[in-house]
Design a protein around this nucleic acid. Structure first.
Length: 243
DNA sequence: GCGACAG
DNA sequence: ATCTTGTCGC
């Protein structure tokens, strides 16, 4: 597993973070991929109170599900302090270090990661999903609940899996897709080591009848449950691993 | 210049 | 993301 440590550290400034994104965006490769035997959903849950300016405590969850059943097979959790603020366009630097810690606790390396955020549908073609995939050398797909810098040309039909291309500077960088009939669409884009067609096909395997794909739903729930546990214990317990 | 801005 | 119960609608 080829790790990129520069992407797993917290940058000293937003400027340096953006510079790293511009540099590493060139290393993202979108290649065809068959539907994998498992998908690993990633999500973070944040503590109510921040420690200082934009310093917050959070829990990251990685949940691997089997296809096509979508049954969970493994869950890993990592918690800790996050010293990088939320800056639109720099989400990867805030979430990926802790997400990676959770992923590396899994007994089995993920086949494909489904990250709660954008892939290449990003101003510098390097959203959090691309960031996570490249940092760990694992195929990744981004799935966000709202568009960021992209636009849709046409309306999206109401039926399940209806989709429309997402455009960014005359380029199709992802798709808005309805994971179930009647629900609002989500916004998917390839992250790393997965091309557009493969990402769409894999996304279609992740619907459990809700708006949010099952791997991310389970990760969201797992992170939320863990946060609830930790919120009732001393702050030091949020350090992971414990001293 | 102004506003908008994944989680 | 997070603070939060009941409630409107299919």
């Amino acid at each position: 597993m080829t790790r990129v440590d520069a992407l797993l550290k917290y940058p000293a400034s937003v400027k340096s973070a953006i510079k790293l994104q511009e540099q590493f965006a060139h290393m993202v490769s979108l290649i065809p991929r068959k539907v994998p035997p498992t998908i690993t959903g990633i999500d973070l849950s944040y503590s109510t109170q921040s420690l200082k300016n934009d310093i917050s405590r959070a829990v990251a969850a990685a949940v691997t599900v089997r296809l096509p059943s979508l049954e969970p097979v493994e869950t890993a959790i990592a918690s800790g302090t996050i010293p990088f603020p939320y800056v639109p366009g720099c989400l990867g630097f805030r979430e990926v270090p802790l997400a990676a810690a959770a992923i590396e606790k899994l007994d089995n390396d993920p086949c494909v990661i489904l990250f709660d955020g954008h892939g290449i549908a990003h101003p510098r073609k390097f959203g959090a999903a691309s960031h996570c995939g490249l940092a760990l050398g694992i195929p990744s797909i981004g799935c966000a609940k709202s568009a960021f810098t992209t636009t849709q040309t046409c309306q999206i039909a109401m039926e399940q899996f209806a989709s429309q291309p997402s455009w960014l500077r005359k380029q199709v960088v992802g798709h808005a897709i309805r994971m179930a009939e009647g629900v609002n669409p989500v916004f998917m884009s390839p992250g790393h080591l997965v091309d557009m067609a493969s990402a769409l096909q894999i996304m279609r395997c992740c619907s459990s009848g809700f708006r949010v794909p099952q791997p991310i739903r389970l990760a969201h729930e797992a992170a939320g449950r863990e946060k609830k546990q930790l919120s009732s214990s001393p702050p030091r317990d949020w350090l992971d691993p414990l001293p």
